[in-house]
Amino acid sequence: MNVLLVYAHPEPRSLTGSLKNYAVRRLMQNGHMVQVSDLYAMRWKTTLDSDDNTAYRPGTRFDPSADSMQAFQTGTQSADIVAEQDKLRWADAVILQFPLWWFTMPAILKGWVERVYACGFGYGVGEHSDTHWGDRYGEGTLTGKRAMLMVTAGGWESHYAPRGINGPIDDVLFPIQHGVLYYPGFDVLPPHVVYRAHKTDAAKFDRICHELGQRLDRLFDTAPIPFRRQNAGDYLIPELTLRPEIAADQSGYGIHAAPNRPED
């Protein structure tokens, strides 16, 4: 299978960098083809702006969505965006690997998402009607592919527990897993998180690699998070709220996952 690893850390000798190298070796040992987008090494341009459309006319009003759609449809996207979109089309699974900085991904990875997920590619696809509100949240360009987060965090695991001060890790990562990954169609696997990353000695590193190796060995067998599909009947359209009889009297991120969601 084909695996794309999108890696965001400025120091190759970091724990994150070492785990990236381990992951690539393990995946290749398992017979997978692997590509790595090392964003810092690539000097990835973070900001979405008019330069992303090579046909942009100076002096005209820049509209991020409209310009993105125009460039995508007419083949005038900048070459770096096209290259990453081609990698996503090639991949059967995508791993986003990053340190948890200020409760989210590093800015360079957020910039990769903003630019590569062009209008017409990552969003803005599908019909909008009384019964179907675009191809998203379980549908879209990347449907049929798997995705997983590999995250290193400085805090203790208890800090991200259900009663931890940082909030449950599934809630912290929800905007990335449900928004960035599930929105364009990925089947999203439970994340792999390494805690107290700055407190890693040789023994802990060996244990971390063993645990990561087990996850990578099951990359194509692990059941995805059962997020509810937007257009499958659970949500009212166009309000896009859960039907009142579903998870009645509940709220929060957890209601958007259905433990017994039927398979397609």
Results as ranks from 00 to 15, higher is better:
Y182I: 06
F174Q: 02
V125C: 12
G154F: 09
D130A: 14
N166D: 14
P175K: 11
Y182K: 12
L173P: 11
R146Y: 00
S129A: 11
R163M: 11
G167T: 04
T141D: 00
T131Y: 10
G185P: 09
T152M: 04
G134H: 12
L142C: 07
S129Y: 10
V116I: 14
H128T: 14
K110Q: 11
A153M: 07
I165A: 05
P168R: 13
F121R: 08
K145D: 02
T152F: 05
D135E: 13
G167K: 07
S158V: 13
V116E: 11
F121V: 10
V151I: 15
H178C: 09
Y182F: 15
P175W: 05
R163A: 06
K110E: 09
A161Y: 06
A153V: 06
G126V: 08
Q177C: 02
M148V: 02
P162S: 06
W133L: 09
D171T: 12
S158E: 15
G144T: 01
I169H: 01
G185I: 04
H132N: 06
I169T: 04
A161W: 11
G111I: 12
Y183G: 02
A147N: 09
T143Q: 13
F174K: 04
A153Q: 12
H128Q: 13
T143C: 00
L181D: 05
F186C: 04
G138A: 06
R136P: 00
Y183V: 01
Y183D: 12
N166G: 08
C119V: 13
H159P: 00
T143K: 15
M150G: 06
F121K: 10
A161L: 07
E127A: 14
P168A: 14
R136D: 00
L173N: 08
D130M: 13
M150K: 07
G179W: 13
V151Q: 12
R115G: 01
G167Q: 04
T143E: 08
K145Q: 03
A153G: 07
R136S: 03
T152P: 03
D135P: 06
E127I: 10
G185A: 07
E114V: 00
T141W: 00
F174W: 15
Y182D: 08
D171M: 09
H132I: 01
P184K: 12
M150A: 01
A147K: 09
V116D: 09
Y183F: 14
H159F: 06
W112Q: 09
P168Q: 10
A161D: 10
M150T: 08
F174V: 07
V113S: 03
H178P: 07
G134L: 05
L142E: 04
T152C: 06
Q177G: 07
R163E: 15
T152H: 08
L149Y: 01
C119N: 12
L181A: 08
G164D: 07
G124K: 06
W133D: 03
H159R: 05
G154K: 13
G140Q: 01
G185N: 07
R146F: 00
E127K: 15
G126N: 02
C119D: 13
T141F: 01
